[in-house]
């Protein structure tokens, strides 16, 4: 799987009200294949010279509803804890063999393991699945910085209240597969909104198709 990245546009300046640590970086990601915004891409910036904001771990739930993880990509700061509630009437078996975080929560039903949190204390990408339902696939992006955002359906990821300065920009998307995140450097100017547009040519992700009749039926 090859990753082709093209930077189409350089940042342009826009005049705005300058506030203390109030700069905004908007990264517009373009999917060259579909020629539309790249959804669910993670954009993380890491300050190079300026002070790194303190990372505040959080607790998040990645629920399983109708034999799907409720979120395809969940972004958490490093050290965060995540539990995987089961909202279906059948059992799920959540696992991960990712090097970032490997865990295995054997079969459990609705209401179980609500207090079972997995701590994601290493930055990186964790792929989670259900051992019963092969098509169930979700990603946990463990960010090393607090400055992280996901692109919306238009492919725009917005980072606000930034201190002007020089940053390392990491862009990751599930379709990158095992490839490392795209790393760039970006300057956030004071008093100006920084806009960045990056076009990515990513191969389509091959996924196990959901069984056709698995959306209905009580015991599917």
């Amino acid at each position: 799987m090859k990753l082709t990245i093209k930077i189409l546009l350089i940042p342009w300046l826009s005049i705005g009200a300058a506030t203390l640590y109030g700069e905004t970086l908007t990264v517009s990601l373009l999917d060259l294949r579909s020629e539309s915004g790249l959804y669910d891409a993670v954009v993380e910036i890491i300050p190079i010279r300026q002070m790194t904001p303190e990372v505040m771990p959080i607790e998040v739930s990645v629920d399983q509803v109708d034999k799907e993880f409720i979120s395809d990509v969940t972004v958490v700061p490093v050290g965060s804890r995540i539990n995987f509630p089961n909202s279906d009437e059948i059992l799920h078996h959540v696992y991960s063999f990712s090097q970032t975080k490997s865990f295995d929560i054997p079969l459990y039903g609705a209401g179980d393991n609500l207090d079972h949190f997995e701590t994601f204390d290493r930055p990186g990408v964790v792929v989670i699945g259900c051992n019963i339902h092969d098509w169930m696939l979700a990603y946990i992006y463990v960010a090393e910085s607090a400055l992280v955002s996901k692109s919306d359906e238009l492919g725009k990821a917005r980072l606000e209240n930034l201190e002007p300065g020089h940053y390392q920009l990491k862009i990751w998307h599930a379709r990158m597969g095992d490839d490392p995140p795209l790393i760039k450097e970006v300057d956030v100017a004071a008093g100006l909104d920084t806009n960045l547009t990056i076009a990515l040519d990513l191969a389509p992700e091959r996924r196990i198709r959901r069984a056709p009749s698995s959306t209905s039926g009580r015991y599917r």
Binding site: F97, V127, I128, G129, C130, D134, W135, M136, L137, A174, G177, D178, E205, R206, R207, I208
Partner: peptide, 9 residues
């Protein structure tokens, strides 16, 4: 055939 874990690995 691909080996999915759950993504193809």
């Amino acid at each position: 055939v691909p080996l999915y874990l759950p993504r193809q690995v």
